[in-house]
């Protein structure tokens, strides 16, 4: 059977203690929350920390707090917590995305922070050490070449988080703490389009909380494409956010602002500005939706490193963006 290598396991009770432990451990130290991403990766030697620092004993990281300008959610809430919290009703898309992650068992363990920081995935990478040796490894770990695009200088591993596209779409902000203090970054700026350096978070920083914007005048949905209704990571995620124009009266409601964010097609949650532009100032008619779907389809460039044929996945962008927008329209009327 597959087992973990040996390492030191630390269980701090406070953020201060966690940061100190990380400083002491140096680059060989890693934080862990639910462990559902890190431990499988350690068993396959993707990450090889000598010290693992658990964040699950820090009660601050599991708090939920309503604010004037929104709601703050602790990063160590489990995905299960997130999918059923009553406070989440206004944030249905967040709860939906959380509920669509993996399996009920894994959602009992995996955390919000873990899903937002999920290691990028690739079926040349998420394999055992021996398997990867058979292909002479890859750029993301132990090798030099990205087999998805061998002439490319970068790694094309895929952002496979369900919740991250929603956070980017609704304009959430992440609160971080590190050796140099606290900072807040918009969700969109937390991610890089690079399979290796996919986060702007420093390795010694902790994702503490997510600040969800106040829920007024906007709505969001999340649609996920995958082979099975459970277990599978998204091969395409569509988070769609719409800020409706107020005071439209009896006239057809108009879109004030919109964001369409795709998961599973790039190394980061990919915001498609052209799709949003196709919606602004317009009613969500079939024509507008089709135009936005077409706009999302064109820049969507899935690579051959997940389940399904990549050209089919690209075609599905159009269908899934359309369906997400149709759901938003139906919810508004």
């Amino acid at each position: 059977m597959l087992r973990l290598p040996s390492f030191r396991y630390l269980q701090p009770a406070s953020l201060t203690e966690a940061l100190r432990m990380k400083r002491d451990a140096g680059p060989d130290g890693m934080f862990v929350a639910g462990g559902t991403d890190l431990y499988p990766n350690m068993k396959r030697r993707h990450q090889e920390p000598r010290t693992v620092i658990s964040l699950m004993g820090i009660s601050d990281l599991r708090a939920t707090e309503g604010r004037k300008d929104g709601t703050t959610v602790g990063s160590c809430l489990t995905l299960r917590d997130l999918s059923v919290l009553p406070a989440f009703r206004p944030y249905a898309a967040v709860a939906t995305a959380a509920r669509l992650v993996s399996t009920p068992l894994l959602r009992n363990m995996g955390t919000l922070g873990g899903n937002l920081c999920l290691d990028t995935r690739c079926n040349y990478y998420n394999q055992s050490y021996e398997w990867r040796k058979s292909i002479d490894f890859c750029m993301k770990k132990d090798g030099k070449i990205c087999w998805v695009a061998p002439s490319s200088p970068r790694c094309w591993a895929v952002s496979s988080s369900d919740v991250a596209p929603v956070m980017v779409a609704i304009g959430a902000e992440y609160g971080l703490i590190g050796p140099h203090g606290e900072r807040v970054v918009p969700a969109a700026r937390f991610y890089n389009n690079d399979g290796i350096n996919y986060l702007t978070k420093q390795t010694d920083e902790i994702l503490v909380e997510v600040r969800l914007p106040a829920s007024n005048g906007w709505d969001a949905v999340y649609h996920k494409l995958r082979r099975r209704g459970s277990f599978d990571f998204p091969v395409l995620g569509v988070a769609a956010w719409i800020n409706w124009q107020s005071g439209a009266g009896s006239r057809e409601p108009l879109v004030n602002d919109a964001r369409i964010v795709l998961g599973g097609v790039a190394s980061y949650p990919q915001e498609i500005a052209e799709a949003a532009a196709a919606l602004r100032g317009k009613p969500l008619s079939d024509e507008t939706i089709a135009a936005a779907a077409e706009a999302a389809y064109r820049p969507s460039k899935p690579m051959d490193n997940t389940d399904f044929d990549l050209s089919w996945r690209k075609q599905m962008t159009r269908v899934y963006v359309k369906r997400a927008l149709e759901e938003l329209r139906a919810r508004h009327t």
Binding site: Y9, G35, T36, Y39, P104, L106, N108, M109
Partner: peptide, 8 residues
Amino acid sequence: PVLSCLVL
């Protein structure tokens, strides 16, 4: 219910 293969 949790996955005992991923709980330390």
